[in-house]
Design a protein around this nucleic acid. Structure first.
Lengths: 356, 356
DNA sequence: CTGTTAGCGCATTCAG
DNA sequence: CTGAATGCGCTAACAG
């Protein structure tokens, strides 16, 4: 592999001249255009490519951002989630010449810890941690003192944190769904979701739903099913939801609409309704949450809150870049939080409330 | 950030001693265990972490493998595909201390070209290219002379190549499906798939199907629909397949089983059949290809050929590692090809052929 | 058994 | 306007 000195020899100039020309600094320093041409020519001829490591060492910058992903086995929900996030992050950093490293859990070492290790080694300039997906409780290293020096951004942090973060406005998303149903004349709505996530007694999403329903003067109830990490396999989650709702449907339904914790739950709900001989959306409207690929594929196509994962990733990527380049930004108040607003994808699983 | 010299000072030894101890070479060189302890202690105290770039420069190894992914927009099929692949690759390389870099297309530069760039810069030790997903035709750089020096492994190459590759045994997969149907007594089978992929007049998968059917003494026909990259959105692909089959179903069906190009196509087929009043699997059996998350979720659960993406990734990762570490392996006959055997996930979309 | 020395390839300062 | 000199942090060969 040719280096600067090879190019210099071939162009009959010194190494620093080559460096200056190739970095485009020749105008500032004042190098003959003729000479610059010769240098470029020579570089071309020997097939010169700058050595990444030497460059990074000198510049003190890796030009790499890591995304930590804790995937227990072959997760299906995870695939979609991470690809959305990574797409956004990449879109944000590619133009600045940054690259994306995937940090996964390996053996007993969690993805977060591995990411922090990468940061310490200076292999990474910044690290993005999806709060929900990467098991933060395993991230021992996050608590260590020198963390203040390290650049970490958390996505959808499931708890209070000092770290800068980007989150989906879950409250706004749920409100969108509730408002949509209210406008369609629904008065009694059902929540269908897992009983807990992590250690909160109920999901934040459900809390948001209840509040939104309350504010819209809707009545209703919640069906909560046990979610022992089963949500990892889509089919299991759908079945859990379906079973939970089916049980309820042995009585007459006292609601005209259902909001599901996510798309998969909503699909399970639709299956339960159909089994009970109820039509969607004529008898009962169903709203999902996530706007994954399933939403469009299912019959009828699902009305669902769009997560805009790639927007979250994009914001996170931009934030990391800003924090890397702008030393000042680092000193800003801890715990700065960016919020991304969701949208509602209205499709055919919702319709006017059936008059009772 | 502390460096070797800081540790050396604190331990009152020389830099090379510290290096030797920390690399575990102290026994070979012959360093007092007492001294080694002191060094480790000192390293701990100052919070020493080796600098990745300096190390890599010296060692001439990046300890990073790239995976090129060409994703047009937000691809849904791609998500599953790449996560499967990346999971396998990561599993193969993590134990050897290698990391995984995601190389996406950026602007007008394809993922493959960016990956090759990374290789040249020595940012990457090896590159894995999913042949089908990353638009190899855009990979101009792959043809350049110095490519022989660069370490590239192609997954499922859609054409003949000199590059080492790992591929799913598509022929075996299709044969599995055909054999399964033959055993169930089916005599007339239908192929449903896109009309072309890249520039071959029909997909290799279809060719394999026809041959397998021929060998099993089955009769049948092919329905080919136009696939203008529409397969990128699952819903579109499903609809194209559904439409194509529905048209055929205006006549009486002259088959008792359908094999779809992939799961999504199979799902489209099931929808078309159901609309035509045909039951799956009582009237017609349906087999898919991919074993994606949809296969289990749909009703009835789909019998499908399991791609084992993560196995492909695993093999590819191992191959890359072998090629990196074993210089000899590099000189092996060009175009070495590893093959991964698929399996058939038998579920409920297939049953005995309806007697006619 | 330990310390000194010599680069790896690059960017930059400072003389010429 | 150009080139020689310096050091980033690390490893490995070689003296001491």
């Amino acid at each position: 592999m040719p280096n600067l000195s090879d190019v210099a020899k071939r162009a009959h100039v010194s190494i620093s001249t080559v460096s200056a020309v190739l970095r485009g600094k020749h105008t500032t320093v004042g190098i003959t255009e003729l000479c610059a041409m010769r240098v470029r020519q020579a570089a071309q001829e020997v097939g010169y490519v700058p050595n990444y490591h030497a460059r990074s060492m000198r510049l003190g910058r890796a030009h790499v951002v890591g995304v930590a992903m804790q995937l227990p086995g072959v997760s299906e929900t995870g695939s979609l989630y991470f690809n959305g996030i990574c797409g956004g992050v990449h879109a944000a950093i590619q133009d600045e010449g940054y690259n994306l490293m995937l940090i996964r859990n390996a053996g007993r070492t969690g993805a977060v810890d591995r990411g922090v290790m990468g940061l310490r080694q200076r292999m990474l300039d910044g690290l993005i941690i999806p709060g929900r997906a990467s098991n933060l409780r395993d991230g021992q290293t996050l608590a260590e003192p020198d963390m203040r020096e390290l650049l970490v951004v958390v996505l959808d942090p499931p708890f209070q944190t000092d770290l800068p973060s980007v989150a989906l406005d879950e409250v706004a998303g749920v409100a969108l769904a509730v408002q949509h149903l209210a406008e369609l004349g629904h008065r009694r709505v059902l929540w269908l979701g897992p009983d807990q996530w992590g250690d909160s007694p109920t999901t934040g999403r459900e809390q948001a739903f209840i509040t939104a329903a309350w504010d819209a003067a809707l009545q209703g109830a919640s069906i909560r099913y046990a979610d022992r990490r089963s949500s990892d396999r889509l089919a299991n989650a759908a079945q859990a939801a379906q079973a939970a709702l089916s049980e309820r449907l042995t009585q007459d339904p006292d609601f005209t609409a259902i909001v599901g914790y996510n798309d998969v739950v909503a699909i399970g709900a639709m299956q339960a309704l159909q089994q009970a001989g109820l039509q969607v959306p004529q008898d009962v409207s169903v709203v999902g949450f996530d706007d994954g690929p399933l939403a469009q594929l299912i019959a009828p196509p699902l009305t669902t809150v769009s997560h805009r994962l790639s927007d979250i990733g994009l914001q996170a990527g931009r934030l990391v870049l800003e924090l890397i380049t702008d030393a000042q930004a680092r000193r800003r108040p801890r715990g700065q939080r960016l919020v991304v607003s969701p949208t509602l994808s209205v499709r055919h699983s919702t319709g006017p409330a059936r008059p009772r």
